[in-house]
Write a protein that binds this DNA or RNA. Structure first.
Lengths: 155, 155
DNA sequence: CAGTATCCCAAGCGATACTG
DNA sequence: CAGTATCGCTTGGGATACTG
């Protein structure tokens, strides 16, 4: 019998999904990670309604994924732009996982429209699973979910 | 200037998100990966409305993430259960990425309710980014998005 | 430029009842 | 047990107009 004694409140997958699992948040993060940092740029590039973008930026900032930092162009008023915080940058692996899977299974005949590279050396980047015993798990890993420290009985 | 000449139609992140980026799909896949394979089990464990579950199972099956396989308990009618297909299993890395991030940033004081282990050796599993030059990129990688083969100009 | 405010629509979801 | 059918609500989202 599988371990199912976790609920949708505490499961980390569910929680993360609740935070960034809507239609726009991850795309906002993708763009910010990619250097698109200002409100109008984001609105234009994503094609998202402005009120929605506004709400997302607020939520992601409140959740600590984005930092709202002031900047000043010469002669212009001070404004803000958005940057990934530390935790936000840690979501990169998630974005790469999405990208990789989509590249393999949903790309058009020409191949994917974008590739991701290591900024330091320029080589393409891959996401891999590896266990603490040093095994590489490959693309179709054999996994087991087990009770963790915060496990609690289900009603 | 960042590379922004990809659109929300072809971006693999956006496409994957369009497929599994709703409130339930990834949780369904999590449960199926974890051995919860039958309709009522899924409905009970997830707490999702039955019509919604029905629609999700159909979509995920149609998309080739789940296989609908017949089984037969002794003395009972033949029925179906759901299993991860090959492409579905490849989503594991995505689930682990969600889990890992949530464990680090959203878990309660007691720690996460579940941990994921290598089924073969029992060791905890981690997701890592690594480039083709062999560099380990760590949790906060420096990445660059660049045009890929299927890149096309934006309107 | 960087948002906020309003309005409206559509999709998504939950609850429930029903069927083979 | 494994779904389908129907209903009504709620939320998310798009369009647009407005403000500092």
């Amino acid at each position: 019998m599988p371990f199912t004694a976790y609920d949708s409140e505490t499961c980390s997958i569910a929680r993360t999904l609740a935070l960034v699992g809507d239609r726009w948040s991850l795309l906002v993060l993708r763009d910010v990670a990619n250097g698109v940092r200002r409100f109008d740029e984001l609105a234009d590039h994503l094609g998202v309604a402005r009120n929605v973008l506004s709400e997302r930026l607020r939520r992601l900032t409140a959740a600590g994924l984005l930092d709202r930092v002031p900047y000043q162009d010469e002669g212009a008023r001070a404004r803000h732009e958005y940057r990934l915080s530390g935790p936000g940058r840690e979501l990169a692996v998630l974005l790469v996982a999405f990208l990789t899977w989509g590249d393999r299974h949903l790309a058009g005949p020409q191949g994917p429209p974008a590739v991701i590279r290591h900024a330091d050396c320029g080589a393409p980047v891959h996401v891999t699973l590896r266990c603490e015993d040093g095994h590489d798990l490959g693309p179709r890993p054999r996994l087991r979910l087990e009770p963790g420290p915060g496990s609690r009985p289900r009603a």
